[in-house]
Design a protein around this nucleic acid. Structure first.
Length: 237
DNA sequence: AATCCCAACAACCGCCGTCAC
DNA sequence: TGTGACGGCGGTTGTTGGGAT
């Protein structure tokens, strides 16, 4: 059925207002998610069902984490993207609180941009190999360094903390992840073992993504230079 | 102070799969 | 089996805020 032009004219587009957010939030709090076209109809919102769904999932939904993608999350995104490609929603499943939209934006604004800066196709084997065998192990080293300094700094306070066991579990997860040394170009990068689709790996991803270590940006000028150098000598792969 | 540029993010669009009829 | 409604996904575009000039 085609929407009449009169109806078409009534559809609001663009940024959501506080009142709209409030209407949508209250409705879903009472009635739950789903039936998005009904949501639009019953709340009186002049929005499409799709627009309501998107607003809820990307912004209003409880537990949505926004901004400051941590080092661990960056590493996860790179790793999962190397496995699944642009399957943003699938990747998002392993980053609690992150939306596919946010991950997609991160990829486009950071990774693709840097690939361009390196005069490299983001989908080329050269770039992917550099990420996988050089860049990701490097990130992991940084995560380890952060984790150990953080652990030292908080050791005494953690002892009496009821979360100590869970926290050290995170650390051991990160520290057990195998990464080849930078000089070991023949070693394969294996972050979380063979079975990426299992429940245990899901838990592992959640642990890594959910911990609070650092929020540093890896895409510094210094690091880009390093990558450039690696790419210039990509025959080592 | 004005403007320009660019990065980051929010939102829209089009396509596709599923389901009910 | 065909068709329309709906929801989900990925690509793309629009907007905005901050830094540079």
């Amino acid at each position: 059925m085609e929407r009449s032009s009169e109806e078409e004219m009534l559809i609001t587009k663009g940024p959501w207002t506080e009142q709209e957010d409030s209407l949508l939030f209250n409705y879903i709090t009472v009635h739950g998610e789903g039936h998005w076209n009904s949501v639009a109809r019953y709340t009186g919102l002049k929005r499409t069902g799709k627009s309501c769904r998107l607003r809820w999932l990307n912004y209003l939904r409880p537990n949505v984490r926004r901004g400051n993608i941590t080092l661990q999350e960056q590493l996860l995104i790179l790793d999962l993207h190397s496995r699944w490609g642009n399957r943003w929603s699938k990747i998002a499943e392993h980053l609690p609180g992150r939306t596919d939209n946010e991950i997609k934006n991160y990829w486009r604004t950071r990774v693709v941009k840097q690939a361009k800066q390196l005069k490299c196709d983001v989908n080329s084997k050269q770039f992917r190999d550099t990420l996988r065998f050089v860049w990701m192990p490097r990130m992991l080293e940084r995560i380890r360094a952060q984790a150990s300094s953080s652990a030292q700094a908080h050791q005494s306070s953690l002892i009496s903390n009821s979360n100590t066991q869970a926290h050290s579990g995170l650390l051991s997860s990160a520290l057990h992840a195998h990464a080849p040394s930078l000089s070991d170009s023949s070693a394969s990068y294996n972050l979380m073992g063979a079975d990426a689709g299992s429940c245990s790996s899901h838990s592992y991803y959640s642990d890594i993504a959910g911990n609070g270590f650092g929020g540093a940006d890896l895409w510094t000028d210094q690091n880009i230079c390093f990558l450039q150098h690696q790419l210039a000598h990509h025959d080592l792969f």
